[in-house]
Structure formats: C-alpha cells, structure tokens
Design a protein around this nucleic acid. Sequence first.
DNA 1: ATGTCAAGCTGCGCTTGA
Length: 281
Amino acid sequence: MRLATWNVNSLRTRLDRVLAFLDRSGTDVLALQETKCRDDQFPYAVFEAAGYTAAHVGTSQWNGVAILSRVGLEDVAKAFPGQPGFAKQAATVPDAEGEPSLDTLLALPPQVEARAIGATCGGVRVWSLYVPHGRTLADPHYTYKLAWLEALRDAAQGWAVPDAQVALVGDWNVIPLDTDVYDPVAFAGHTHVSPAERDAFSAFGAAGYTEVSREFLPGEHIYTYWDYQQLAFPKNKGLRIDFAYVTPTLQARTTGVIIDRDERKGKGASDHVPVIVDVAD
DNA sequence: ATGTCAAGCTGCGCTTGA
C-alpha cells in the first residue's frame, strides 16, 4: 500500500495537480492538509470518478484536512478525542473615549478547528494532521499549538496498543533538527524550532511511534517545504516539517519513504511537497 | 523586484493567514 501526505495549500486551486499526483505516484491513500474549503465545496465526485473515496472536514477558507482512499475508508473521525479549540479574538470594542482599546479585546469561545481527520484505510488507522502554526512565540496561537500537540500525543498514546497499525501523517509545523532548516541561526527566536515545540514533537517517540521519513531518509537538508517568497525553492532554502509517525507494527511493514521534491517545480505548485510511505502488503 | 500565494469580502484593493 502506498500512503502519502501532502499540504496542498488550497485544494480547489491545486485539484489538477492532486489528480496528476495520484495518477503518477499510484498512491492508494492520500492525506491532505490545508484544503482551504468547506465540506460543501469539496470535490467528492471528482475523486470518486478517479476511484477514491474521500472524507473531509472543513468549515471555512482556513485549514481543512482530508483523506482519500482506494483501499477502503471506514470509521471516519473529524477530530481527535480531546482536540483543543482556538479562541479567536473578536474585533476590538471601544473604550470610554470611544477608541478601540487593546485592553478590551474580546476572546470568543474556543472553536475546534479542521486540523485532524482519521479514517481506517486498508487496515491502517490514518490521521491527516495540520498542526497549528503558532505565528510567534508570544502569540496565543503558540500556546494553542503546544496544547494541541500535547493533546494529540495523549490520544495517540492510547491508540498505540500492541499490534495497532496507526499512521500520524501531515504538516507538523515543527523543525525537529537544526539540519532540517536552511539557516538555523535565522530561525532562532521564531516558532518551529523552540525547545518546547521540539520536545512536543519528539514526545510521540515516547508515546510509541517512530517517524519513518527520518528512518528512511536520515540525510541533512532534506526539505518538504519551501516558502513562496525570496526564491526559496531555486535557492533550496527549505524546511523539513512534514512527517509520518507510525506504530511498530506499521513500521515493520514500511519498505521506503519518498519526498516528491519535483512536485514543488513549475507554476501552480503548493509550497509543500508530498511525503510518500510505502507499506508492504 | 523589500523576488509570494490564496481566500473572502467588498469591490476591482484590502485584509488575514501562512
């Protein structure tokens, strides 16, 4: 079985590329992140015509995760148990002088975002994950990111029972090693590289998972993302932030990992490329 | 070339998010 994960940065913009990728790669199960569409905008029929059943969760133009499968798709979960929500701040309200005041920002109730979807495909429990970005170390989104990862770790630890076949794949928005970024000095003080984020990422190892892209592709400066700005891709100024954690039984079946770097080329590319995991039948 | 892209909403530019 060929399992892949890809942050497509808008499915509607990239639908032709996704279909071409499925055809070219022979992927059986594709986890997508950042579909950037609502469920009613998701092209279920297009994927059905291509032979794939799809499950999607999307509530707005932001986030959105999906799983496509041509080897079955069962027991869909549109969030993980205990998945934290994010409390957006409403518009400022006027203070006594009628001016917007930073002291009167209104925190809206936390909303569980479309960042995780699970389904059982061909005997493997697949989770398509879009970890919150964090924005800056001082932003409430960063606190949310750490809480989100911790809650996922707790849930995932419970799934990692003996012989379980679980894959946690997606855009983790964490740079685990200094050699996973083109310039670690330039990233100091930013999100993705903080000790807390790196600890939250590596905690999945202690929870019973192995990150198989690292196992099969241990080299330095292997990237899965290149910013659209500053000619990052031609200069190969990338980040390694898309990963696949799997349970031991699934790890034992894993025969290889491919990072499809060519998918970043040409006009209309996503800023991320697919990470492909091959699993023996 | 302060070397980007996408979506929504109002509108044909701005804001948000990455």
